[in-house]
Amino acid sequence: MIPVAITVNGKVRTAHVEPRTLLVHFLREHLNLTGTHVGCDTSQCGACTVIVDGRSAKSCTIFAVQADGSTVTTIEGLAADGKLHPVQEGFWEEHGLQCGYCTPGMIMSAVNLLQDNPSPDEKQIREGIAGNFCRCTGYQHIVNAIQHAAKHGGGKAAR
């Protein structure tokens, strides 16, 4: 067991973990932050996407021990003071989700995208979420959702 201290959604969380504990399991099982999902085991679907040290990352492909000392934002940490993040608002406004399973990861990728590029065109949006699979929506409403978020300050919003 190895001690780790990871700042998650603004709070330092300490634990002793097996080296093989995946960050996603640390978040879900140790911290009960179950909004981050697991949709595959080959690092492709993006359901587990969180922000690590300011960049979107697949938390199923990082060991918790690697994230020791890092700052992590999960979907639960996105809304500030009970107010939805513009990307979350966009997904609600534009029906950017159906079953909701890919949604947290998709939103975190969109946050990363808008942070890099606050007014992306449609092609850039589609490329920006290429690491996130959605089986329900056919992506069109997700694209609309991100466009909506971009129009409403999604790129500038605090994380």
Binding site: L33, G35, I75, L78, W92, G100
Partner: peptide
């Protein structure tokens, strides 16, 4: 959709 406020915040409860 009224399902969405919980789901966009990661507050849906799936089996796992």
């Amino acid at each position: 959709r009224r399902e969405d406020p919980r789901l966009v915040r990661g507050l849906g409860t799936y089996v796992d």
